[in-house]
Design a protein around this nucleic acid. Structure first.
Ligand code: SF4
Ligand code: SF4
Lengths: 137, 137
DNA sequence: ATTTAATACTACCTTGGAGTAGTAATTAAA
DNA sequence: TTTAATTACTACTCCAAGGTAGTATTAAAT
């Protein structure tokens, strides 16, 4: 019951970028060093984030990354969905085919409240809203 | 953000056993067939459950498994802990060393409420309490 | 006693997430 | 124009979870 490293890294990367949005571009090197994420793994993630349009990249010397979509319009839920980490509505927590409230699994009644709250929390947590003062990175 | 197969299987196995607690012993074959869990994988899990004392096994012909600890005293939380699937208190959701509310991570304030509720839900869900009528298995 | 049906043990295979290595392509600075 | 600093691409390695195969052990039924 935890997020994938890729999702964790991505949330921290984008939060870092928001916290430094005064600067026009941020490099993979800076992100890797400041967030303590393996450089090569980070660049792989960045390329993916470019592909899906969360950020854009400027190649070559003095290059780097900046937001393409606004940070207030990217949610933690979007990130989890991207890396297949989201809590899907139709997915049974016990893995018994797909969720059908007419035919509930053993945990359904206990789980459903937490599930809804989690989904709402992830959906409402924009990158803008979580990036804040004095948080650890 | 989901449970391991091993945890899912175990919850279903123990719930099934509660639902058939009239019978003195239940075999791996029956569990495997009725719950659609690979036989060899299931026996591996059962042996582990015997080792930690949730159930006991009777070997030989007409053998099988039955509860050792009472089903009302085994919780879903116990199972998740056993398979390292639990939400640990000291574990940061973003993976930034260990949780220190004095030095919060970006998601802390949004996450903490769900976290507490999930932990409580898992802790309060005994096998006895989730096994019920007409649930899918 | 032998057979049969059950659990236990040991060793392996497979898959996907995580991480690494090397090189190509790009572009500004020197 | 060369060099340096950057992102992009391709191809691997590593590890743990999930799953499989074969055999040993146990004990009731026959
Ligand atoms: S039954 Fe409850 S838990 Fe199982 S899938 Fe439907 S919602 Fe999720
Ligand atoms: S800060 Fe919040 S989220 Fe990060 S660890 Fe502490 S509790 Fe968990």
């Amino acid at each position: 019951m935890q997020l994938s490293n890729t999702s964790k890294y991505t949330i921290r990367i984008l939060a870092y970028m928001v916290n430094h949005k005064d600067r026009s571009l941020i490099s993979a090197k800076e992100l890797s060093e400041n967030l303590d994420i393996p450089y090569k793994f980070l660049t792989k993630i960045m390329t993916e984030l470019v592909k899906v349009g969360f950020i854009e990249s400027i190649r070559g010397r003095e290059g780097g990354y900046k937001f393409l979509r606004k940070a207030s319009e990217i949610t933690v839920g979007d990130i989890l969905e991207l890396f297949n980490d989201a809590i899907k509505n139709e997915e049974c927590i016990l893995g018994i085919d797909s969720c059908d409230p007419k035919q509930k699994c053993a945990l359904h009644d206990k789980w459903i409240k937490s599930k809804v709250q989690l989904q709402k929390m992830f959906r409402e947590s924009t990158i803008e809203s979580i990036a804040g003062e004095g948080n650890k990175i």
